[in-house]
């Protein structure tokens, strides 16, 4: 059976499709452990109390 990326060609505009990659999530079974905390961390980022992880480097 055809993979998703091949099928998308029929439906997606070329430019955004080629600019986009489809990747699986990395957190897997740990997603629930990070979800709630991420809500708080992002909120703290929005009010200037926490830098995004890649802004520290």
């Amino acid at each position: 059976m055809k993979p998703l990326l091949e099928r998308v060609r029929k439906y997606g505009w070329k430019q955004p499709r080629e600019a986009c990659s489809i990747v699986p999530g990395k957190l897997g079974s740990k997603l629930g452990e990070y979800a709630g905390a991420s809500v708080a961390l992002y909120a703290l980022h929005e009010i200037g109390e926490w830098d995004l992880p890649w802004q520290n480097n």
Binding site: G25, L27, Y34, A37, S38, L41
Partner: peptide, 15 residues
């Protein structure tokens, strides 16, 4: 939204 934030901050969407 929370799961999206988690993948963005610590998973496959970092940066």
């Amino acid at each position: 939204n929370a799961s999206g934030l988690a993948e963005w901050l610590f998973g496959s969407g970092v940066g």
